[in-house]
């Protein structure tokens, strides 16, 4: 757990940081943050509990416990990362631990949209490249400079073009990943839509 946490705000075009590799497919959100830590009315203390049970099982050898990873900010994962529960507590816990971007083979849908909604870019690379990065991280530090505008990640030894959904990329570059104000701007359209929906009329007992 690092120094005080400041959430991202506004435009996100670059993320720089040290990589931390976590190997495994189908790592679910129960593992990222076990359900007992969901008994809270804010997200503040989640960072210290990220991967709590996996870390306990590995007694100090989990990547999130290794001294050399303590300043890491870019998480490298394999396929279907974040599957399972829709708990935003999972990306919130990762973010509060210090993760600012995630690069993986693939992400579960709800986890992905939760990450966008809180300002964590999730980038994808083919399996082979992910494995190459994970091998590199085994015995060396890897500092990456992620350039969202050009879909490029650079380091001393490795450079690659990652993939990101075009809509997500645009949202990060414009700051609209924090969607509330963009959605609210269409206030009149929302009202119109509400009045057009057939079921609003026949569900009079809702009101």
């Amino acid at each position: 757990m690092k120094s005080e946490f400041t959430p991202p705000i506004g435009k996100i075009s670059n993320v720089d940081g040290q990589c931390i590799s976590l190997i495994g497919n189908d790592i679910d959100t129960d593992r990222i943050i076990p359900a007992r830590f969901l008994k809270c009315v804010n997200f503040d203390s989640l960072g210290e509990s990220v991967f709590e049970d996996d870390r306990k099982t590995l007694i100090g050898k989990h990547p999130f416990d290794l001294e050399e990873n303590k300043n890491a900010a870019i998480l490298i994962v394999n396929s279907n990362f974040g599957c399972g529960s829709s708990r935003e507590h999972a990306p919130q816990a990762l973010m509060r631990w210090g993760i600012k971007a995630i690069i993986g083979e693939s992400f579960a849908d709800i986890f992905y949209s939760n990450c966008i909604a809180i300002g964590i870019p999730c980038l994808t690379l083919p399996k082979k490249l992910i494995e190459e990065i994970q091998n590199y991280c085994r015995n060396r530090f890897l500092f990456l400079e992620i350039d969202l505008k050009n879909s490029l990640a650079k380091s001393k030894d490795l450079n690659f073009n990652f993939e990101i959904k075009e809509s997500s990329r645009k949202m990060f570059l414009s700051g609209e990943w924090d969607a509330t104000s963009t959605l609210l701007a269409n206030k009149n359209l929302i009202e119109n839509k509400f009045n057009q929906l057939p079921y609003i009329k026949f569900n009079t007992n809702f009101l």
């Binding site: 829709s86 708990r87 935003e88 507590h89 990306p91 709800i110 949209s113 939760n114 909604a117 809180i118 969607a179 509330t180 959605l183 609210l184 929302i190």
Partner: peptide, 13 residues
């Protein structure tokens, strides 16, 4: 299913 930030958006909009 949605996450908490999206719950916020649905409540607000």
């Amino acid at each position: 299913g949605i996450g908490t930030s999206q719950v916020r958006d649905v409540l607000a909009t």
